[in-house]
Design a protein around this nucleic acid. Structure first.
Length: 774
RNA sequence: GGGUCCGUAGUCUAACGGUUAGGACGCCGCCCUUACAAGGCGGAGGAGGCGGUUCGACUCCGCCCGGACCCACCA
């Protein structure tokens, strides 16, 4: 403290020492007994590949800014770090990483591989978080695949089971033949895919021909009816007749239904089980008998005749060839089709009826809408994403998955009567390899059981993170103090999954809204505004960026590039820009550090220029706090950059340089300048501390205090006469003098004759010495 | 097809319905000026379109166009 800054620029190698000191001195430790508690439900990142998305790194930097902001506002902050380690993503990664297949390797072996893959990926993510200066608790970070976490997941299931919110049902479901599991609507991703719309001739019983357009000719074998619109004059007299399905020669009825659009295709549609959810709905409504044409491997079943055993796409190509050969095809059009695909494998899903386990969500729609309306959203406009999703829910949530690396569903079935038995909570159960904890079936008395082999949907685990971190059912006192959670930060892309499921699950379990506010950020896109993806080759690895520019520059980029909730761009140029500000800040501090800190000074002795910059600072202070109160770091980042760079450094420092050196001024005047320089510096550091924690800490400790800046609060008082109305005048006048000197070929040191405007007369002495005005 | 958000220079953005629309990065030209050439000075470059309200519109309203995202049964 009290030392001058020597080095010509900020050395990012210092970041590590500073970080070690933070963790050694435990300045971020959470105190559950504090009267002001702030709890962050940090998104546990999902390790699913390398490198970690630079947008995720930026996102975590901002979440850290939330934590640091809350501390500076006077809260004790619970900022846990977690890892979401269950589900399909890591299984697919492990399959590639170790060149194995979930379908051929033993379950136990497969789990080991997944765990190893997770540990590798996780190590890199934790390393990045630490580099970034994340002030969360790394000593006890949690993992959703830990025994403790899975125990809680299972306990919540058991609770819901006992309350009758869980049921079994066999119904057509989204099924991914690649992942070989049922998936929920929330896991669907629609992709535009080019498909062939094939026009096929059907023979009607009156020997006329009826042409039908379809994108799924391979499902001809599962066709049970042909539909036309009741108002379609062309087909009116055909309704009620039978048509023969090409190739299969089976007869199905022609029926009418208003859902059929007269203009699309030929106005006639075939209904197959199951091409899409339209078919599902029609089968139910028209009481048609389903024909299962696709099996769990995504291959055609025996009903497909000569196409049996072929994959769906192969069968489609083959049947089109055969139809052409046999003269059934009228024409083929290429259409772009929005196809539902699996969000993990990106393979088109099939609709296959299977028995799955469901969690009731339809009865909670009203309540969820209420919660969606009362929850505070930052920014407000993202509330609509949640409301839209809730309104669009039409089915309960299928929570069972035919996967391995996930939390086991704790059910055993009686081997004789198949009655399901659910154990008592408090233990982590693995029914696929453990003996049932029951002596006899409660229904038939049989003594043998079969363990459930399926696991939960990942979202069933990750939707209780706020309960896990507040020690729900584990530490009642702690839970009471920390629940509900102050803030849920997350990206806008997972509003329909993570946010919705968390609100639903926590409401079902606690009867309450779990969050005070939701903080929703936009996507990080590339320099052209396009989504980053490995296939496009525009992915940026965050590690080299942080190594080259430092964590502060990285964080300043994340904070200053776009306002809360909007998408923001990443590029080399942008990182450079951010690092320029870090350098500027360093140089300002370096200049000021040559003067001894004056802590006590009678502010009535300040000169007008000092009062002017302090009143500018006062204004900026209010704006920054306003931004911080909304956890919108874009505001303080840009306000501070503008203030420090374009007002404080460019004008105030230049105005008082001579005075600070004591060149032609009294000692008191000199001291006034130095006092002001330090006061502005000190407060500016505090205003930047949550965004750029390393450099602010270093300057702070070098100049002002032995204690960390991150233990400070924003309680500064700036009471000063407002002179900000003169700001534009000052800037204009200085520019004018600089321009004139340049035009006259004068050096800045040379004297000049120029009149100081009346309203700036109060600054006359500083202005004269600054510009050497005669 | 429906919904949400958004449209200010190449990029990021600022401005109670009243300013020659401000700044930053980038670009061009000129300058070492003792915190900083990682600096300074100067310059070129902008409201998606059409209407309406108004004395006055970047700002309010409507329509159109464009973009992003979400939802949906166009076979």
């Amino acid at each position: 403290m009290g030392k001058a800054l020597e080095e010509i620029r900020w050395n990012i190698k210092k970041e590590k020492e500073i970080r070690d000191e933070w963790f050694n001195s435990k300045i971020y430790e959470f105190n559950p007994n504090s009267p002001n508690i702030f709890v962050i439900d940090t998104p546990p990142p999902y390790p699913s590949g390398k490198p970690w998305h630079i947008g995720a790194a930026a996102h975590y930097s901002e979440i850290d800014m939330i934590a640091r902001t809350a501390r500076m506002l006077g809260f004790s902050v619970l900022f846990p770090i977690g890892m979401d380690r269950n589900g399909i993503g890591v299984e697919r990664y492990a399959e590639k990483r170790f060149k194995i297949s979930i379908h051929t390797i033993a379950r136990e072996e497969f789990l080991k591989c997944c765990k190893q893959a997770l540990d590798e990926l996780e190590a890199e993510m934790i390393e990045i978080m630490k580099m970034l200066g994340i002030s969360g608790d790394f000593d006890k970070y949690y993992q959703t695949d830990s025994e403790e976490y899975r125990k809680l997941t299972q306990a919540t299931f058991i609770d819901l089971w006992k309350r009758g919110l869980i049921y079994f049902d066999t119904r057509p479901n989204n099924y991914c033949p690649v992942c070989k599991t049922t998936i929920a609507d929330a896991e669907l991703e629609y992709e535009e895919i080019k498909t062939k719309l094939v026009y096929i001739k059907f023979k009607v019983e009156n020997n006329k021909e009826l042409v039908i357009a379809t994108t799924r000719p391979e499902l001809l074998c599962a066709c049970q009816a042909v539909l036309v619109n009741p108002n379609d004059e062309r087909y009116k007299d055909l309704v009620g007749m039978k048509v023969k399905i090409p190739i299969y020669e089976r007869e199905v009825p022609i029926m009418s239904h208003p859902i059929v659009k007269i203009e699309f295709g030929t106005g006639a549609e075939m209904v197959c089980s199951y091409g899409d959810y339209n078919d599902v709905m029609l089968f139910r409504e028209l009481m048609l008998k389903e024909i299962i044409a696709i099996d769990l491997d995504g291959r055609m079943t025996e009903v497909a005749g000569r196409y049996a055993g072929l994959k769906v796409e192969e069968a489609r190509e083959r049947i089109i060839e055969d139809l052409k050969k046999e003269g059934y095809v009228v024409k083929i059009e290429e259409v772009i089709h929005n196809v539902p695909t699996c969000d993990r494998s990106h393979n088109p899903i099939e609709i296959i009826p299977m028995q799955e386990i469901y969690l009731k969500q339809l009865p909670f729609k009203e309540k969820m809408l209420e919660i969606a309306k009362e929850l505070e959203f930052l920014p407000e406009f993202h509330r609509q994403l949640l409301i839209n999703w809730i309104n669009s829910i039409t089915k309960d949530w299928p929570i069972s998955r035919r996967r391995y690396y996930a939390t086991e569903i704790p059910i055993w079935y009686c081997k004789k009567c198949l009655e399901p038995h659910v154990p008592e909570p408090g233990k982590y159960y693995k029914p696929w390899k453990e003996k049932a904890p029951f002596s006899a079936c409660k229904k038939c008395g049989n003594k043998e059981f079969i363990g459930e082999e399926r696991t939960f949907d990942t979202w069933f685990d990750s939707s209780i993170t706020p309960l896990f971190i507040t020690k729900y059912k584990a530490d009642e006192k702690f839970f009471e103090k920390t629940f509900p959670v102050s803030i849920r930060p997350q990206g806008k892309d997972i509003v329909r999954t993570w946010l919705y499921y968390t609100l639903l699950r926590c409401y079902q379990l606690t009867g309450k809204n779990v969050f005070k506010r939701a903080w929703i950020s936009g996507y990080c896109v590339d320099e052209k505004g396009e989504k980053m993806s490995k296939s496009k080759g525009n992915v940026i690895d965050p590690i080299p960026v942080i190594e080259r520019y430092g964590a502060d520059a990285f964080r300043f980029w994340a904070a200053s590039e776009s306002s809360l909730g909007y998408d923001f761009r990443a590029s080399e140029k942008r990182f450079q820009n951010a690092s320029l500000f870090i350098t500027k800040l360093w140089n300002i501090a370096r200049y000021i550090s040559q003067f001894e800190v004056i802590s006590n000074f009678d502010e009535s002795k300040l000169l007008p220029a000092d009062k002017w910059i302090l009143s500018e600072l006062k204004k900026v202070y209010e704006k920054c706090l306003n931004g911080y109160n909304q956890f919108n770091f874009f505001i303080p980042a840009n306000e501070m950059r503008e203030f420090l760079w374009n007002k404080f450094a460019a004008h105030y420092i230049e105005m008082v340089k001579k005075r600070a050196y004591g060149d032609g001024f009294t000692l008191e005047e000199k001291r006034a300048a130095i006092y002001t320089l330090h006061k502005v510096m000190k407060i500016s550091l505090k205003l930047l501390a949550p965004i750029i924690p390393y450099i602010t800490e270093y300057i702070w400790k070098t100049l002002y205090s032995e204690k960390s800046i991150h233990t400070e609060k924003w309680d500064d008082k700036i009471e000063i006469e407002d002179l900000t109305t003169l700001t534009d005048k000052i800037l204009e006048f200085n520019s004018l003098v600089w321009r004139q000197k340049k035009e006259k070929g004068l050096s800045l040191k040379d004297s000049i004759k120029i009149e100081i405007p009346v309203e700036l007369r109060i600054f006359e002495k500083d202005l004269k010495s600054m510009h050497n005005i005669l």
